[in-house]
Simulated scan of single mutants.
Amino acid sequence: MTATPEARAWHERGDQRSPSPLFRPAKLTPEQRDEIVRRLDDGEEPMDLALEYGVAAGTIRNFR
């Protein structure tokens, strides 16, 4: 099963309600992801950021 363009757009925007059962709502907005990348580049630890944003440390590490 492939995602519709609407579902892809929803996922990229990080909307809180899913138009499709294919995706879960994003826990982080694009702005939060940008901030995390900047903070990782500044030397902050993924685990500290994960606790602050309420996501797994692996999620934060994936942004590197």
Rank of each mutant, 00 (worst) to 15 (best):
S20E: 11
P19N: 06
L40R: 07
R24C: 03
E6A: 05
T29V: 00
T4I: 09
P19T: 07
D48N: 09
M47K: 08
P46T: 00
P30C: 01
E31S: 10
D34W: 05
I36P: 15
W10P: 00
R24T: 12
A26G: 06
Q16M: 10
W10L: 07
S18N: 15
G58E: 12
D15N: 08
V37T: 08
Q32A: 08
A9V: 05
A3Q: 11
L28R: 03
P46I: 04
E12M: 08
V37Y: 04
A9Q: 08
G54T: 00
T29G: 08
P46N: 00
R8T: 01
Q16P: 14
K27A: 10
A57W: 07
E31C: 03
K27N: 11
E12P: 02
A26K: 14
P5N: 07
P30V: 07
G14Y: 03
R24M: 05
G14P: 02
E45A: 10
V55K: 06
L40P: 06
R8N: 03
L22D: 10
E35I: 12
E6Y: 08
L28S: 06
I60E: 02
E45Y: 12
R17Y: 13
D42V: 00
L28M: 01
P21M: 07
F23Y: 15
D15M: 07
R24Q: 14
I36H: 03
T4R: 06
G43V: 07
D15Q: 11
Y53D: 00
Q32Y: 02
P30Y: 13
L51V: 05
R17S: 15
I60K: 11
Q16Y: 01
V55F: 07
L28A: 03
H11T: 06
D42Q: 14
P5M: 01
L49D: 00
E45G: 12
E6M: 06
P5A: 07
S20Y: 06
A9L: 14
E31Q: 15
L22A: 14
